[in-house]
């Protein structure tokens, strides 16, 4: 245990750093380069898990666990939840719309990175004390942290607690929508439907063929055109209806062609056989 947080790194840790560090950078790059938000979120989750491993390697056992539980477990799931809410299939165009933005961003990023790395390189960071003494002072990493949090940092801790509560309330306030009218009962809804005179029965179910009974596929009307009514309103609003009407016709066309080819080959064979028979 102590060796992991020693002042001199072991060969194992070096290998682990180079392998996982490369993956973490790739994950970070993928996060900012993936077209779909859900892919970005997954790449970020991977990077965060690797960071958790690095925390552990640096002797921050509590933080490593918290990183996995809080970040990858809670925060990233929250992200995914919102991504789903917004539309999981919506792909962003990576084409830049602001003039010069990408060049400026690249220049700033490069300059910033070079400056940071130069700064770190400049600093005299040769002496690593290691966390062995600090972690064992109170009997372990968690105990050590607890000792600090509830003594030296107790006010900051209390204030972060208040911040969390405020954030929770703020999120509720932001997303909450006050109901301005009473919700209609089922009876009233059915009466309204009768009064309007359309769609007295329940809306038609999505899907036509067994393999396309997903909720985002519109059911086909008798004339072969899709009916949007069969798809959930949320999906309709997001424009996430998959149109399979042409797919089916294409499938049919391909089937006919294939059968015709087969039939034609049979015919040719028959013709050939016939000529041979005459001879």
């Amino acid at each position: 245990m102590n060796t992991l947080a020693a002042s001199v790194t072991s060969t194992g840790e070096a290998v682990q750093f180079w392998v996982l560090g490369t993956i973490a950078v790739i994950g970070a790059l993928c996060t900012i380069l993936m077209k779909r938000a859900v892919h970005s979120a997954l790449c970020l989750a991977g990077t965060m898990i690797i960071l958790a491993v690095f925390y552990l390697a640096n002797g921050a056992y509590f933080l490593g666990v918290v990183q996995i539980v809080v970040y990858t477990g809670a925060i990233m799931m929250l992200f995914l939840f919102v991504v789903m809410l917004v539309g999981v299939t919506a792909a962003d165009s990576l084409k830049e719309t602001l003039k010069g933005q990408r060049w400026l961003a690249a220049a700033c990023g490069l300059g910033f990175g070079i400056l940071l790395i130069a700064g770190i390189g400049n600093a005299s960071l040769k002496n690593f004390n290691g966390l062995g003494a600090a972690n064992s002072a109170h009997g372990g990493n968690v105990e050590g942290l607890a000792a600090l949090i509830f003594t030296k940092y107790v006010f900051a801790f209390e204030i972060t607690g208040a911040l969390l509560i405020t954030a929770a309330v703020g999120a509720m306030v932001l997303t909450h929508r006050e109901r301005t009218e009473r919700a209609k009962t089922q009876r009233e809804l059915s009466e309204q439907r009768v009064r309007e005179g359309k769609h007295l029965p329940p809306l038609p179910a999505p899907g036509v063929y067994a393999r396309h009974n997903a909720v985002d596929i519109a059911g086909l009307l008798p004339d072969g055109t899709p009916s949007e009514l069969t798809v959930n309103k949320t999906l309709r609003d997001r424009g996430q209806i998959r149109d399979v009407s042409t797919e089916a016709l294409d499938d049919l066309k391909a089937l006919e062609q294939r059968s015709e080819e087969r039939l034609g080959r049979d015919k040719d064979a028959r013709d050939r056989d016939g000529q041979e028979a005459k001879r």
């Binding site: 950078v25 970070a28 790059l29 900012i32 961003a105 700033c108 990023g109 910033f112 990175g113 790395i117």
Partner: peptide, 13 residues
């Protein structure tokens, strides 16, 4: 530093 810079570039892009 590298990860931070990548993140910043992502914010901008």
């Amino acid at each position: 530093a590298l990860l931070f810079t990548i993140g910043a570039a992502g914010v901008l892009i």
